[in-house]
């Protein structure tokens, strides 16, 4: 368990908690400020994206690795947790980022004769 490794007298759970709190604050602040503080330069969409995705990855790692103990537990648990990643990527790519007109433009062999498909 991670509590045996002390950093400045505190265990890894404490520091993980601090990191998670800090990055959550950073994430909310990034969206709260429409312009960079002290300037008139607007925060662009791509910067917000980069911050949200980057912070999400850091927070996800902190929770999974330390709070869920994947870092210290046998590798089989990490493999179990990562197993659905393939399906998640397939869903994000195949559904989430598919052609917006995908539902109506699917090949005929996978579109039943729905009224929905005809009228949409």
């Amino acid at each position: 368990m991670g509590e045996h490794k002390l950093i400045m007298g505190k265990d890894i759970y404490f520091w993980n908690f601090i990191v998670l709190m800090f990055f959550t604050l950073f994430e909310v602040a990034a969206v709260f400020f429409e312009e960079y503080p002290g300037t008139d330069i607007p925060v662009s969409k791509s910067v917000v994206w980069a911050i949200l995705i980057g912070v999400g990855i850091i927070k996800g790692y902190g929770i999974a690795a330390y709070f869920m103990h994947l870092k210290d537990d046998p590798r089989i648990y990490t493999r179990t947790a990562l197993f659905p990643v393939l399906f998640v990527i397939l869903m994000l790519w195949g559904i989430g980022l598919s052609n917006p007109a995908g539902v109506t433009e699917l090949p005929s062999w996978c579109t039943p004769n729905w009224d929905y498909a005809d009228t949409r």
């Binding site: 648990y77 179990t80 947790a81 197993f83 659905p84 399906f87 998640v88 869903m91 994000l92 559904i95 989430g96 980022l97 598919s98 917006p100 995908g102």
Partner: peptide, 20 residues
């Protein structure tokens, strides 16, 4: 952990539908 694995897929469907 197997249950969590299935839950990841459940939430991935919500997320991918939203993204779509």
């Amino acid at each position: 952990w197997v249950f969590i694995m299935s839950e990841i897929m459940v939430f991935a469907t919500f997320f991918s539908s939203y993204l779509r």
